[in-house]
């Protein structure tokens, strides 16, 4: 746990101890550890002098802050109406087949999490998805197989 303590200290030193810096601190932890562990949140509470409930309450509000460990790669498929009209369901089916998980689940070994998300702002190029920070548009099952194949072969 010494590592978490160090990381939190580093971030709190960088951004400041005031409450207004809570989101940047949580996001900093998330970037390093891929989620917010209970230990990390408790450490933030301690170092920023806030109650642990406040930290968890804030973190759990936001869809890009995870409070439990899941996949290294988070696949977020846009489920807004225009992406749905452009064939989102087929994209989800392809991903489910390839990863052998359902939406909301994580593959064994915690490599991929398959999620649906609200509008990604790529409505003119749907169906669209994000894999971590990368975005992919005008998806077809064939295109998805190619993209995911590259991730699976660990190109990244």
């Amino acid at each position: 746990m010494a590592e978490v303590k160090e990381l939190v200290k580093e971030l709190v030193d960088k951004y400041g101890r005031e409450r207004k810096n809570l989101l940047p601190v949580l996001q900093g932890i998330h970037l390093e550890t891929n989620y917010l562990s209970k230990e990390a949140m408790l450490e933030v509470a301690k170092q920023m002098d806030l109650s642990a409930a406040e930290i968890y309450g804030t973190a759990s509000f936001y869809s890009f802050l995870d409070t439990k460990a899941d996949g290294k790669y988070k696949i977020r498929v846009c489920k807004s109406i225009t992406c749905e009209m452009a064939g989102k369901s087929e994209i989800i089916r392809t991903l489910e087949d390839m990863l052998k998980v359902k939406v909301g689940e994580t593959t064994e070994g915690k490599r991929f999490s398959l999620l649906e998300t609200n509008c990604l702002g790529l409505c003119d190029q749907g169906p669209a998805m994000l894999i971590n920070e990368e975005f992919y548009t005008q998806l077809t099952p064939a295109k998805v197989r190619k993209i995911l194949g590259e991730y699976i072969r660990n190109k990244y």
Binding site: R19, L22, L23
Partner: peptide, 18 residues
């Protein structure tokens, strides 16, 4: 950090205040 409601200006401010 991912929340539609934060487009509402006072929610946005709350969010910026941590």
């Amino acid at each position: 950090a991912g929340a539609y409601i934060c487009g509402e200006e006072t929610a946005l401010i709350e969010s910026m205040e941590g």
